[in-house]
């Protein structure tokens, strides 16, 4: 990645132009032209730095509910319980974390009822009762854009 790549990444993370010729706009902004802008973005995608370019929707505004769930899983049962959790397409993220409640996953579903149902199913199928539903009660921030400093590298 060179300085220009980082500048392009900062630009298209915040907002990719929703226009007929987005790469022409980006190319003009950086004085490199449409072809070069497209070539650089394709390369950043091939290198795996860009996961995707697309929309991030506000699940609540689309009528969906979401939550964070923490569950206390015995060490020797982690693989098995993770399989059970990941089976649900409503589970979008799932991590092992260094804590007694060691598995943390996020759920997005069309209703709060469905979320409760999934948590109860995971609890009853695994036999684990130490499971906590942690829905957000106040929102302060979501911004997953990474800020690349212009450090000349």
């Amino acid at each position: 990645m060179d300085t220009l790549d980082k500048k392009i990444l900062n630009r298209i993370q915040t907002g990719f132009p929703v226009e007929e010729r987005p790469f022409l706009t980006i190319g003009n902004e950086f004085g490199i032209g449409e072809e070069e802008a497209l070539r650089r973005v394709r390369r950043l995608k091939e290198e795996g730095i860009i996961r995707r370019i697309g929309a991030s929707f506000d699940s609540r505004k689309l009528g969906f509910d979401s939550t964070l769930v923490a569950i206390k899983v015995p060490e020797e049962r982690i693989d098995e319980v993770v399989l059970l959790i990941n089976e649900y397409k409503e589970v979008t993220h799932n991590y092992l974390r260094d804590n007694d409640y060691n598995i943390w996953f996020t759920l997005i579903a069309p209703s709060g009822e469905r979320i409760k149902e999934i948590i109860e199913e995971i609890s009853s199928k695994s036999g684990i009762t130490e499971i906590r539903n942690l829905p957000l009660t106040r929102f302060f921030k979501v911004n997953v854009d990474l800020n690349f400093r212009d450090d000349g590298d």
């Binding site: 990444l9 907002g15 990719f16 730095i49 996961r51 929309a55 991030s56 929707f57 506000d58 505004k61």
Partner: peptide, 17 residues
């Protein structure tokens, strides 16, 4: 404009970046 879409843009792989 209405906020249904939080953003339209590139999502990066944090580790690779």
């Amino acid at each position: 404009d209405k906020g249904y879409m939080r953003k339209f843009g590139a999502i990066l792989l944090h580790r690779e970046a």
